[in-house]
Each structure stands twice: as C-alpha cells, then as structure tokens.
C-alpha cells in the first residue's frame, strides 16, 4: 500500500513542481498585461483573471481535459490527462500569482522608479534590478499561502483520474474497505506541506538582510 501511495506522491510532486515552473513566470506576464495602460492588454487579462478566480478549479480541469474532444472532436489520448492537469493548474495558479505580483509591484514607492530613472537605468534594468527583488521579498507570505494550497489542490487531479496520491488512496481505500490509505495519504500531504512551509520560511529569512 505504501509503495502505491508513494508512486502517487511522485506524481503529485510532479504536478506541484510543474505547476510552479509554469505558473510563476506566466503569472508575471499576466500581471504586466493587467497593469498595462493599453486596453488590448489589460482588458483580456482582467477578464481572464476574473474567470480563473471565479470558477472552480475542478471545473477548469474538466474543461481543459474534455474541451478538445467535445469542441473539436480531437480524440483523447491517455497521456493527455496529465498534460491537461498541468495546463489547468498552471493557468489557474498563474491568475492568482498575477494578482499577488500586481499588489507587490504597485506597493513599491514611485520614488524607486524615479531614482533609477535619474541614475540612467533602463526600464528593463529598473524592473529586474531595483523593483523585482523588492517585490519578491514582499510577496513571499501570500505566495507561501498559494503554494500550500497548491499542494492540497493537486488532489483535484483525481477528477479526471490522474494517478496521483489522492486517486490512489481512494482506490486503495475502497478496495480494502479501510481508512488507512486515506489517513496515510493525509500524513504524506501534511509532511509535504511541512517541508514546503519550512523552505519558504528559509527563503523569507534569507531575504531578511534588508528592510
């Protein structure tokens, strides 16, 4: 049983990591669009964020998974399940991250931009050297919240039967008519999150060298 759960855990971790890899940069791009003064950038991104935050992630997973078949009659291959989950999680979390970035970026005083401008930094240098490091420090607490939620949300992949830890735990539990697999899975999720929270705390401490 534990081996089965652990193989599921590997899939859960893969979903978790791949989602972060895609959602963290995508969120930045979306937040820049959202803050743009150009309507053709900020209106679509605003609508996108609103939909992603306003509808259930479970439903989004199903739309991404079944959409190609129902809408375009593209036959579903079995390995598309995993890809669909990654796509759905990435765009959903990107929307949340985008709003966190936006709040972080808008909290940086205008004087930082002005000082950089007078010193001759280009827009790009200003953003990556002066603004972003300060933003990252400020957004670690809300990002930590999202990341911890993501660990638990990976279980939503069971909606389309991706063989991650929760799907497997549920199968084992009904096959053995036992609570144990579910409890074991719960412990694994908890440990997973404990480690994630610890790592984020270390990151926060590492950035505590200035205020």
């Amino acid at each position: 049983m534990l081996l089965d759960l652990l193989s599921g855990l590997v899939t859960s971790i893969a979903i978790f990591l791949l989602t972060l890899v895609f959602a963290l940069p995508l969120g930045l791009v979306i937040s820049l669009g959202r803050m743009s003064k150009r309507g053709f950038l900020n209106i679509p991104t605003k609508i996108f964020i609103s939909i992603m935050r306003g509808t259930p992630l479970m439903l989004q997973i199903m739309v991404v998974y079944f959409g190609p078949y129902y809408i375009f009659k593209i036959p579903l291959s079995s390995n598309y399940r995993f890809i669909a989950v990654i796509i759905a999680f990435s765009i959903n979390y990107a929307a949340y991250f985008a709003e966190i970035y936006r709040a972080g970026i808008e909290s940086i005083p205008i004087g930082q931009y002005e000082a950089a401008h007078v010193l001759g930094y280009t827009k790009c240098q200003t953003f990556f050297k002066i603004i972003m490091p300060q933003v990252i420090k400020r957004i670690i607490p809300p990002v930590t919240n999202e990341v911890i939620t993501l660990v638990k949300d990976t279980s939503l992949s069971s909606t389309i039967s991706v063989l991650e830890m929760f799907t497997i735990a549920r199968q084992l539990s009904s096959a053995q008519t036992s609570m144990m697999p579910l409890i074991a899975a719960g412990i694994f999720y908890y440990v997973f999150n404990f480690i994630v929270a610890y790592l984020m705390e270390q990151l926060e401490k590492a950035l505590n060298y200035y205020r």
């Binding site: 005083p109 004087g111 930082q112 002005e114 000082a115 950089a116 007078v118 002066i130 490091p133 300060q134 420090k137 200035y210 205020r211």
Partner: peptide, 13 residues
C-alpha cells in the same frame, strides 16, 4: 546632472 530627493529614495536591498 544628479538629483537628491526629499525622501532619499535609496535602494533598500
């Protein structure tokens, strides 16, 4: 030219 601001605007990091 150089400019000195009222609020310093040093880079905190």
């Amino acid at each position: 030219f150089g400019l000195v601001f009222q609020n310093f605007n040093l880079f905190p990091h």
